[in-house]
Design a protein around this nucleic acid. Structure first.
Lengths: 154, 154
DNA sequence: ACATACCGTACCAAGGTGGTACTGTTTGCC
DNA sequence: GGCAAACAGTACCACCTTGGTACGGTATGT
């Protein structure tokens, strides 16, 4: 239905929270209570973020998570990719376990090229928003200009 | 998972097929066999497209569907909106039956503004691709330029 | 030792999606 | 008139994803 999952949304909130306290070790519980969200959800998403290398984790008493990276380098796209996994707008370009194309009418498909392009445009939009901007709460709105980069993808 | 549903995909294919034979009445069966897709799926999606005013329908023997409009005016965005219904990237802006905001932390949410912007950017991307272009198979790639239209949405 | 807090995995209910079936209604044609 | 073609509407179902929970394990500071 063309929307990001709630889990991904939680992940963004958690990342922003950590980025706002960059370098500081914060327990998952603190984030959960701050946003009034169920703790298991936050921990689950933080595990994923850690596995993806977005945040660091510290075990044991006094442990927690922290964002130690550069908020100007980490992008919204990276975070979403980490949380949602690799995705495509349509299955056109997706392949199954054996590496074969999923879509059977792929070569003759009239919408594939467009979808591929829009797919990239959307990913590009996510890629151009940095965590720093998310954290600051400013809004460098990404507009889409047609014919900006006409590409005949073959 | 941030992808359009397969039904919507079918709908795009069907619309393009009709647009390529603009004015001509085509049976659903013809479209289904052309794309090697299950007939009930195609009929279902064509009903939706007709209900949304994208295509015309003709009942009875020799009936079918046809695209009689202007392919330069109909946009990909309109078709998707018809097929998927109104959507938002996140639930932030969605409201329940009584008109209240779904999201409880809405006012303090750090990602809302961005999501709202990206939401619009994506919709804008869809809106800028016309059915005519889809039909021709050319690809006016939509690029996203940051800071193109900085908007401080309140 | 013990409490804190992350790790891994498994589980479950609910909702959405993809697909099918069936009955009705309209219309062209013999 | 009768029949077949083709859309209309609705209901149904299996499957998968999603949101959320539970629980035992491990690391660590006091």
């Amino acid at each position: 239905m063309l929307k990001i999952s709630r889990l991904t949304d939680y992940g963004l909130l958690a990342t922003v929270y950590l980025a706002r306290k960059a370098g500081e070790v914060v327990a998952a519980r603190e984030i959960a209570t701050f946003y009034h969200l169920p703790l298991p959800m936050i921990t689950k998403v933080l595990k994923t973020l850690h596995a993806g290398g977005i945040v660091q984790s510290y075990r044991g008493a006094g442990g927690g998570y922290s964002f130690d990276g550069d908020a100007d380098i980490v992008t919204l796209g990276q975070i979403i990719e980490t949380l949602e996994g690799p995705w495509n707008l349509v299955e056109c370009e997706s392949v199954d376990e054996s590496g074969h194309a999923v879509c059977s009418i792929r070569v003759a498909c009239p919408s594939r090229r467009f979808m591929f392009g829009i797919n990239r445009a959307i990913k590009g939009a996510f890629e151009q928003v940095t965590l720093a901007e998310l954290t600051q709460g400013t809004m460098p709105f990404a507009a889409i200009k047609k014919q900006e980069l006409v590409q005949q993808h073959v």
